[in-house]
Simulated scan of single mutants.
Amino acid sequence: MTSATPSPETQQEAMKIAKATQKPGQTKEQTKLIAQGIEKGIAQYKKQQKVKARERDKDKKKQIRAKQAAKQENETPDISVTDSAHDASNNKLPWILLVLSWVGFAAYFALAQSA
């Protein structure tokens, strides 16, 4: 993506900086060399900034994934706790009905024998 030659904007900016820092008696050739050095510095700075931006993006994605994973982990136990509480009440119901039916049969037979 990056070309070997800097963009015209970068070249103009480097030339402005080189002329601004030009010493008395400095030749145009020396100023051009200084401008080229500044261009290289700007190009290197831009590359470093791109690398840093990529790293920040990677870190943000990791944080988002971690938050989503934590959110899913938090949601999953809530569902299982609700299910286990629901299962516990369902497990008691058949036993309660069994006991009531036995009590009912015992009462029925007791009344039938006394009559």
Results as ranks from 00 to 15, higher is better:
1 M>I: 08
2 T>P: 08
2 T>H: 01
3 S>K: 07
4 A>T: 10
4 A>R: 06
5 T>H: 00
7 S>E: 10
8 P>A: 13
8 P>Q: 14
11 Q>Y: 02
12 Q>K: 13
13 E>A: 14
13 E>K: 07
14 A>N: 10
14 A>G: 09
15 M>G: 00
16 K>E: 15
16 K>M: 15
17 I>K: 11
17 I>D: 02
18 A>F: 13
19 K>V: 06
20 A>K: 06
22 Q>P: 05
22 Q>N: 03
22 Q>W: 04
23 K>D: 09
23 K>C: 05
24 P>M: 02
24 P>Q: 07
25 G>C: 03
26 Q>H: 01
26 Q>Y: 01
27 T>Y: 01
27 T>E: 00
28 K>Y: 02
28 K>D: 15
29 E>V: 14
29 E>F: 11
30 Q>I: 04
30 Q>M: 07
30 Q>N: 03
32 K>A: 12
33 L>V: 08
34 I>R: 06
34 I>Q: 08
36 Q>P: 00
36 Q>F: 03
36 Q>C: 01
38 I>A: 01
38 I>V: 15
38 I>Y: 00
39 E>Y: 01
39 E>S: 09
40 K>C: 06
40 K>D: 12
41 G>E: 05
43 A>D: 05
44 Q>N: 04
44 Q>R: 05
44 Q>P: 01
48 Q>A: 11
48 Q>P: 00
50 K>N: 05
51 V>M: 05
52 K>R: 13
52 K>Q: 12
54 R>G: 07
55 E>V: 04
56 R>Q: 07
57 D>F: 02
57 D>K: 09
58 K>D: 00
60 K>M: 11
60 K>L: 15
60 K>R: 14
63 Q>G: 04
63 Q>V: 07
63 Q>N: 08
64 I>T: 13
64 I>F: 05
64 I>N: 02
65 R>K: 11
65 R>Q: 12
67 K>S: 09
69 A>S: 08
69 A>L: 14
70 A>D: 13
71 K>Q: 11
73 E>L: 10
73 E>R: 10
73 E>H: 08
74 N>C: 10
74 N>E: 15
78 D>T: 06
79 I>V: 12
81 V>Y: 06
81 V>L: 13
82 T>Q: 11
82 T>N: 12
82 T>W: 05
82 T>H: 09
83 D>M: 04
84 S>Q: 07
85 A>I: 14
85 A>Q: 11
85 A>S: 12
87 D>Y: 08
87 D>T: 11
88 A>P: 03
89 S>N: 09
89 S>D: 09
89 S>W: 07
90 N>A: 14
91 N>W: 03
92 K>I: 13
93 L>D: 08
95 W>C: 00
95 W>Y: 08
97 L>I: 14
99 V>C: 09
99 V>N: 00
99 V>A: 15
101 S>N: 09
102 W>G: 06
104 G>S: 13
105 F>D: 04
106 A>K: 02
108 Y>N: 03
108 Y>F: 15
109 F>I: 10
109 F>G: 05
110 A>N: 06
111 L>N: 02
112 A>C: 03
112 A>K: 15
112 A>R: 15
113 Q>D: 06
113 Q>N: 08
113 Q>S: 10
114 S>R: 07
114 S>C: 02
115 A>L: 12
